[in-house]
Simulated assay, not measured.
Amino acid sequence: MKANGKCLCGSVELEVEMGNAEVTACHCSMCRKWSGGPMMALETSDILIISGESSVSRYHSSEWADRGFCVNCGTHLFYHLKPNNQYHVPVGLLSVEEEIDFSHQIFIDEKPNYYSFSNETKNMTGAEVFAHFEGEE
């Protein structure tokens, strides 16, 4: 499934091939600091076509990940897991025609108590997330 999106100012356009039609909410402290709340993202395959790359800045937020944003308008563009070259793109950035499902919440142990979602989802703690990715290597 393919989807397209662009930043607020239109300097950067993305074309992604999505691995599935499932949205994941990340409640880790870095995602909440970066986005002002949980990061709601679609997982993509390793195919991400970026038009306007000169307007993209990558912040190396950890040994294993980069966060991309538009240098002109500040729109959050992606979270990139370096070890497996996987991109997670904010769902609100993309024009998605297919029905998508809110299926997972990660770093649920870091979620503050001032919000919650009513959806039934698979929930993983930070330790479970790291164990999962270590198992993929």
Rank of each mutant, 00 (worst) to 15 (best):
N20D: 14
S103Q: 14
W64A: 09
E98L: 09
A41S: 04
F78H: 04
D101N: 15
S61C: 13
C26V: 02
C7W: 05
I49L: 15
L14Q: 01
C7N: 01
H80Y: 13
L14A: 00
I100K: 06
G68K: 01
A21W: 14
C70H: 02
G74A: 10
F107H: 10
H76R: 09
G52S: 11
S57W: 11
V89I: 13
I50S: 04
S57L: 05
Y87I: 01
T75R: 01
P83A: 15
E22N: 10
G52P: 11
Q105E: 10
V23G: 06
Q105I: 03
N84P: 07
P83E: 14
W34T: 12
G37S: 10
M18R: 06
H88L: 10
M30C: 12
G36F: 10
E43C: 09
M30N: 10
E15D: 08
E99S: 10
T44C: 07
H88K: 13
W34K: 13
E53A: 13
E22I: 15
Q105A: 06
K2D: 09
H104K: 06
G68E: 03
S29N: 03
V16D: 07
S29M: 04
I106Y: 00
G92I: 03
L93K: 01
M18C: 12
S45F: 00
S45G: 02
L42G: 00
V96D: 04
D101R: 15
R32W: 14
P83D: 14
V56A: 05
S29V: 08
S103T: 14
W64Q: 10
Y79L: 10
D66S: 06
D46I: 05
V16G: 10
A3S: 09
L77A: 01
S11F: 04
E63Y: 00
E53V: 14
A65S: 07
L8T: 07
E97P: 14
R67G: 11
Y87E: 01
S55F: 14
E13W: 00
S51H: 12
V16N: 07
I49N: 14
A65K: 08
L42S: 01
S62G: 01
S51A: 12
N20F: 03
K82S: 08
K33C: 10
K33E: 13
I50H: 13
G92Y: 02
V96M: 11
H80T: 03
A21E: 13
M30F: 15
E43N: 08
K82P: 08
G92D: 02
L48N: 09
S95N: 12
H27W: 06
K82Q: 08
H88E: 13
G36C: 10
Y87T: 00
H27N: 06
G92P: 00
L48K: 06
C26T: 02
M30D: 11
I100L: 08
F78P: 00
A25L: 11
S62V: 01
K6Q: 06
I100Q: 05
S55L: 10
S51Y: 05
I47R: 11
E97S: 15
G74N: 12
V16W: 00
M18K: 06
E13N: 05
S35V: 09
H88R: 12
T44Q: 03
S35E: 09
P38Q: 03
S35W: 11
S35Q: 11
S103V: 12
V12S: 03
V16K: 05
C9E: 08
M40T: 02
E63F: 01
L81Y: 15
A65T: 02
Q86Y: 00
T24Q: 09
H88P: 02
G10F: 06
